[in-house]
Design a binder for these strands. Structure first.
Lengths: 190, 190
DNA sequence: GTCTATAAATAGATAGAC
DNA sequence: GTCTATCTATTTATAGAC
């Protein structure tokens, strides 16, 4: 892994901040260059296209998420594994809010150059949750059903995390995590 | 409510189909005109701008969703209200897949001309779920926590619905609904 | 109300000097 | 490796005839 030059770093960082606020198609290469403190030519020297630039940002982001979920799953057993995954995912969202916003706005899209890479990693993340669910559901549960449940847990955590960042950012991660997990505890249905 | 002319209808329909496949910024007014079988000038005669066109599509969509959730909530009491909301939301998604895809790809965005309208309606939908949760959570639960839970349930249903449409579209709505609701039943934690 | 033709602006990408 | 200057394509939006 060749280490990243300061210029490349500045460009990625500028693209991330601008993309989180204005969206990707609302961000121009001109703006990225300006914010990174370099000329547009330098941006294109480091990234062959706008698509490649944001693809790098998104794939490393989603890849980190998948890795986080994988480690959380292995850190505990049974339902505690689900609890760890939800909590760690929320922590990750909190630690990298800009990236979380950017990913959330792109994760449902199927019309982008980088869709394949992002969708593959999204499925990886969801099937990581699916694996943790395996011992918790009836043996007869179909694979698609288990992935639907996993998708639901993923969606609940993501939407809860976004709701948190956008509307009650002062709330502690533990409280957010507790709220999301409460819905899976069965106490609602009791 | 002035009734919609056939031309306007054709334009909205074309915009919906194209937007669901290619995304909004990936859809040009030229394409919309062509698909609707009219000239571009006619598109602009009916909608003052591209933003207005998609705003109309999205706000009526999210508004229908909020209305559906409201009715579902009032159709039952206790946890059954949550069950009804999840099921009816999934049914709505199934009945209007193109609109669901379009909404999902825009609902997290905060950079669009129509963001205010869409975000307002999104919050309306979530607080409808929050209302149904009120009698199901401890009295001491804070308002933000309840909204986080509601956001989670909304997110789970949306993501589950999308997972369904994209990866196992042949699955019956009842099975999808059962899978999502299973995660809220408490059986996972048992 | 619908059309054709065109204006006007934007933004991704490249060339070539330093 | 980084810069400035420029090309080129795209696309939103408008003007004005029918």
């Amino acid at each position: 892994m060749p280490r990243i030059s300061p210029t490349k770093m500045a460009i990625l960082s500028a693209a991330l901040e601008l993309g989180a606020v204005n969206g990707i198609s609302g961000t121009t290469m001109e703006q990225v260059a300006e914010r990174a403190g370099v000329a547009k030519g330098s941006v294109y020297y480091n990234f062959s296209s706008k698509d490649k630039l944001f693809e790098e940002l998104l794939t490393t982001g989603v890849s980190t998420l998948a890795e986080t979920l994988s480690q959380a799953r292995q850190s505990a057993a049974g339902f505690a594994a689900i609890e760890a995954m939800v909590t760690d995912m929320l922590t990750l969202i909190a630690e990298n809010r800009a990236l979380a916003k950017l990913m959330a706005s792109e994760i449902f899209r199927t019309d982008r150059a980088w869709q394949d890479a992002v969708q593959t990693l999204r499925r990886e993340a969801i099937s990581e949750i699916g694996t943790a669910l395996a011992p918790l559901v009836p043996a007869a549960t179909s694979e698609p059903s288990r992935l639907l449940m996993a998708g639901g847990i993923f969606g609940a955590t993501l939407m809860g995390g976004l709701e948190w960042l956008l509307f009650s950012p002062e709330t502690d991660v533990a409280e957010v995590s507790a709220a999301i997990l409460y819905t899976f505890s069965g106490k609602l249905a009791a």
